[in-house]
Design a protein around this nucleic acid. Sequence first.
DNA 1: TAAGAATCTTAAAATTTCCTGAAAAAATTT
DNA 2: AAATTTTTTCAGGAAATTTTAAGATTCTTA
Lengths: 224, 224
Amino acid sequence: MRILLVEDDEKLCEAIIFALEREGHIVDACHEGDDGLRWILQQAHDLILLDRMLPVMDGISILKRIRAEGIAIPVVLVTALGSVGERVGGLDAGADDYLVKPFAMDELLARVRAMGRRPRQWENKGKLSVHDVIFTPISGILEGQSGTCRLSKRESVFMAFLLQNLGQTLPRDVLLARVWGPDAGVEECNLDSYIHFLRRRLHTVGSTLHIETIRGIGYCLEAG
Amino acid sequence: MRILLVEDDEKLCEAIIFALEREGHIVDACHEGDDGLRWILQQAHDLILLDRMLPVMDGISILKRIRAEGIAIPVVLVTALGSVGERVGGLDAGADDYLVKPFAMDELLARVRAMGRRPRQWENKGKLSVHDVIFTPISGILEGQSGTCRLSKRESVFMAFLLQNLGQTLPRDVLLARVWGPDAGVEECNLDSYIHFLRRRLHTVGSTLHIETIRGIGYCLEAG
DNA sequence: TAAGAATCTTAAAATTTCCTGAAAAAATTT
DNA sequence: AAATTTTTTCAGGAAATTTTAAGATTCTTA
């Protein structure tokens, strides 16, 4: 999953990022409330870990705001305030789960896994089986009818996202946000290159999946 | 949405345009009050961002004028004057929302989204199901009784607008303004071409929808 | 009914967008 | 540090879209 971490304690941030990346997730982190809101609004993430107390704009305000916007991305509130009243307040504001500091890292990982299981088949024991290919994001191995190959890290992120959105038209800017991160300053032509790479991968593996280009909009992975 | 931005600070203009276009909107901008009024009167937009202080003609005057004309397009006033009195004055003049400079870009985006949610008509996600066709603006796919085809970007904008106004007679100048933008310097004959393209599309898809020409006025999409 | 205006059709020019191969830059491994 | 892999950038050409133009057709009206 691509996870957004909004947490001002940098030491804690580092530890969480380390743990999550070890599980194969992509983590974007920011340390201030307004930055967090800006990133969330781009809807580039599958899960948001949100600290309750933040500089500039607090977690509850952010949460209420994005729910008011109709954004339904799962949010786990992380906070030092553990009283029942506080807990209820957070869930009322639209949190999907609640984690009280200090917590064990395994506790966090378990909750993240639980969240990830909910809506999608994201991690069917690590493999993504779509149409006539099987892809393992963590190792980047793509298996098809007539062969197997290993994708690079960025290719893997890209491929995983396409596979999860089979048949969906994905605008160029959405792809840039999901694959390179919300604030990455990469040239657009980079996207072209990677589309090219992935098409070649699908071909060498003998899949009938193909990436359709929607001119002026973006791309769409299609079967057959 | 197609948004009109009337703002004399060019730097700010650029920033706003960048942010809005990133969210998938079409933005037209002008920098003087009289230009702004002229464009608004064409009713080509879904939302107007109006600076209060402008050269030639101030925002409040424009607002009062267009409300007097019976134009109900949502208007967000943008201004440096933030006192309660000023705020009330703006809303009384007919503004739907009020934004005080300096503002965070996200604040602006959120308000634009809030405005856009009101008449759900033209959401990116949703499909447009009219009579015997289903049209998906984001991917430009048109499905009918006997087939499916994909429209180009401009064809899509045009088709979506026609479908949303089934049975309405749409004057040529309104169509030009909505599909190409209020200031687009395109020849009229371009409109003829696209009407032709869309008729062919509807035919190949096997729809009984047809574009009636109202000679001397414009066109009208009709069923049956 | 014939002249004139508006619209339709077709074709081709102009523009934009995308694909592709290759090379430079950065990161990773040996 | 060298070698390899990955990522990014660049640029020419291909393809699709958009625009323009011009002749044919239809409609209006004098």
